[in-house]
Structures are given as C-alpha cells and as structure tokens.
Amino acid sequence: MRILEGENVCKYFGGLKAVSGVDFHVDHGEILGLIGPNGAGKTTLFNIISASLANETGNIHFDGKKITGKKAHHICRSGIARTFQAVKIFGAMTALENVQVALLFGCGTKISKKQASEQAMEWLEFVGLLKDSSTLAKDLTIANQKRLEVARALATNPKILMLDEVIAGLNATETTELMALVRKIRDKGITIIMIEHVMKAIMSICDRIIVLHHGEKIAEGTPEAIASNPTVIEIYLGK
C-alpha cells in the first residue's frame, strides 16, 4: 500500500535543477533509502515533502490526500516528521522540553502539559535518553543530540519519519546503536525514509533504495539490485 506518492516533482535554484521530474512512492511500513552523491537533491526532496521549500511543479500525495502547498506545521500534524542533516535542536531548553513542544503542538491531539511531560519521558526512554531528560540540549553529545531529534520527531506521532543523515559524524558503536533504534522505530509500524552516505548501513537496513543524481532519479530497487546496477556503480566509483 502506497502511503506517500510524488509525481514529476521539480525544484530549481536559479538555473540549477536541484530536483527535476522525480516520481517516487513510499510503501506502508518499509524503510526507503535515498542515496546519491553530494548535491544530488536528496535533502531538497526532503525539504519539499516537509514544506520547507515550495516545489515548482508536481504533486505529492500522502494517504491519498494532496499535501503540496500546505504549511510545514500542517505537514507535521498530518503525520510526516523529519530530522535535519545538521541537528536543529532547541539548545537552551532541556531534552524533556524539546520533546514536550513536539507533543503539545505536533501530535494532533490536545494534551495537558503534565501529560506531555509524562509522554515525553516515555519517548526519551525509547531513544535511550531517560537519564538526560533535564540536561540542556546543547550540552548533549552529538550522538545524543541526534537521538533527541529523533525522539522529538517521534513525539509528533508520525506515520512517516524522514531521517536526514542520522548517522553522519558518529563512531562505529554509536552508528550500530542508532541503526538498532531505526529498526525499533520501524517495528512500531512507522514508515521510514532515510538519506544516508554510509553505504554499509543503508544496504543492510533498507527494503528499497532510490538513487538521485543531479536532481534526477537514476535508479530504484532492492539493495541488491542497486549494488549491482552499472549506472550507480559508475557514479559512485567514478568513470
């Protein structure tokens, strides 16, 4: 079952085609990988889906409803959450407060501040940050800031979670732990789209992969198919 579907999505920056004529779909419950060299348009596509950027042409449907042209907070409330390539946490607020804001404004149901606080603790526990609940977000390690961002996104009760290079800059142990977290999220029934540069991680976790290059979709398929696709190999290994 298709949960998210985009057709002919285009975005230009001046004369540069950041995303050009991309068709894509995401199936319910899967982990979709989005890969491609730097500047391929991966984050731009995320920004379009989450309404950070407006696309020039094309439509995106979520759960059968058109979401193009909606505001960022509407997209979030309708069930699409995201994290950012460079972490965007609320530095001077505690980890608990970070998640609380998401619960109070993003989850779609009205809850009291007290309920939000209780549920926020549950989400912090889920990502393994329970003991850091009263730490200021800016004082957390990078790995924990990324976990916090994930917890904040999850707190909005999403159907789809978009992760933008969630393991970039982490060491091997931290990477393994975060990958385990991603699986745990999928097991809750949340569909995941992830942008990643680390091939090993993405090949092992994704059900399906889309490859972007210069803003265009050049390949799509299972990790095995992508790994043996001559065009993809050419781009990644150079001519």
Binding site: S50, C76, G91, G106, T156
Partner: peptide
C-alpha cells in the same frame, strides 16, 4: 504551552515549525 513554543522559536524557528508549531 505557548511559552514553550515561543522559546523553541527563538532557538530554532525552522525546527519549531517542523514539529507542528504554527
């Protein structure tokens, strides 16, 4: 909750909008 939202806007407006704050 609006006090929290105001602070989150001051910290990172883009992130605030993406977790549902208008």
């Amino acid at each position: 909750k609006y006090g929290l939202a105001l602070r989150s806007i001051g910290q990172n407006e883009e992130a605030a909008s993406h977790i549902g704050v208008n």
